[in-house]
Design a binder for these strands. Structure first.
Lengths: 247, 247
DNA sequence: CCCCGTCCTTGACCAATATCAAGCAAGCGT
DNA sequence: ACGCTTGCTTGATATTGGTCAAGGACGGGG
């Protein structure tokens, strides 16, 4: 494993406050590995052996049932995923696959469980991280139940814009089919709904998003911090999509 | 506060392993109170001042946005709710109201945060509880995205039946409108969908549910432990509906 | 440069779900 | 017991979202 990987991991909210000795021990049992694009890293239902940390690339978390599939989140560097399954020593609830070539750090779940029992600082970090994850999924569920698909898309675009400081032009960072699945609709529906949003102040051409009338868009989906975030002190890994890039 | 209340709280997974001294201190700052039916205990967005423990009665957790409302969970004795908001010292994501006359124990969030920083056992319990809550919401979200309304209802009824050891006859414990809202549909849709489920092996008359053909019902919605639970060692407060009663 | 695969879009159609409105039934207080 | 409220059901209709099928755009590899 590269030395600067360790530094990056060490700076994650989850690991930054623990004792150095414990961190070192945790990392001793861990190993880094690079995976090609499109590889299934985790299959839902498998026992949770490793906490995963994305160092480079991106990973999709998705769920399936009876042949249907839906995206639950896209995880980008540097953050962790499937912490809860590791802690409970329970089967993964979601599958994971690389969206592109990705380098991951795998930390044995058993080490993890052992360490937070004797490092109070790490326990507190874990608590904070989990509480953040919980709140992020609750927000996601609220969005699904309280908004229709046009509203979910509009809110998603507004969230992207806001994460870039209110930019009126930006690019989508993930494929539309993935956004559609994350927002709980079909790609066809996403496509048509995006078109129909032109009349409330937003145009999408390919990856390019242009908010032509911010006030109108805001009136169409009044953003709500209790749904759209952000949360205070924000690890939300596991249930959101990456932010856009300006331009 | 009644002495036997303390004993019951002490037996909750969240509190059972902590040091007695810390438990006592936590309870010293806490107070019990009885509320009438239909009272709003918490309004979403308010600062999280107290961890709530339901001692008697039942409490609905719900969310709202732009005049729409949806039920997120019904909490029954003895369990806690809104733990995550208290931990993060962040605004509540959900509102709460009593469904019937209820007695609650209110534990100051600041005491909570202080205690798990110095009681490792309590920290571990908190971690386990939160991980359970997180997984419960993830399951809920999976159900919403992967199943249509008929399937969600059938799965809900099967879950009730299974929680009673596979009973073929049982009663619904909460109002249908509440079930509908929890499952993400209108009461009208629930009503019609229930009727249509007769052809796959389940009859509902008022509160009475009769599974007339378990095999057919199971074939219609193959239960999935990764959606329908149960999880190992199961605190799931905050995101489910209560179990039924046989008969 | 062109072919090919992948993703996105579009159209036509259909299914699922919501809405509106009315009627019904059970529970409660007077 | 009566009337009232509340929740449930049903019907008619509108809207939303899904499905199927085809065509178009874009990008990577030969």
């Amino acid at each position: 494993m590269r030395p600067d990987d360790l530094a990056e991991v060490r700076h994650l909210p989850l690991f930054r406050d623990m004792l150095k000795a414990n961190f070192d021990q945790l990392m001793q049992g861990a190993y880094a590995q690079t995976f090609p694009a499109g590889l299934e890293l985790i299959r839902q239902g498998d026992p949770a052996d490793f906490l995963h940390v994305v160092m480079e690339g991106s990973v999709e978390l998705y769920a399936h049932w009876e042949g249907r599939i839906c995206t639950m989140a896209v995880v980008q560097p540097v953050s962790t995923f499937i912490l809860a399954a590791c802690i409970k020593d329970a089967p993964y609830l979601m599958s994971a696959r690389t969206l592109e070539r990705a380098r991951l750090l795998l930390v044995p779940a058993s080490d993890l469980r052992a360490v937070f029992r004797r490092d109070p600082e790490f326990a507190v970090s874990t608590i904070t991280e989990l509480a953040g994850c919980y709140r992020a999924v609750v927000r996601h569920a609220k969005g699904l139940k309280l908004r229709n698909s046009r509203e979910r898309i509009a809110a998603y675009l507004l969230k992207q814009s806001r994460s870039l400081g209110g930019a009126a032009r930006f690019s989508l960072t993930v494929e539309k089919r993935l956004i559609a699945s994350y927002l709980g609709m079909t790609p066809e529906n996403l496509s048509r709904a995006i078109r129909s949003l032109e009349e409330v102040g937003v145009q999408v051409k390919g990856q390019q998003v242009t908010i032509t009338d911010m006030a109108q868009l805001l009136a169409f989906v009044p953003p709500d911090p209790l749904i759209d975030g952000p949360d205070t002190g924000g690890a939300t890994a596991g249930v959101s999509l990456p932010q856009g890039v300006a331009g």
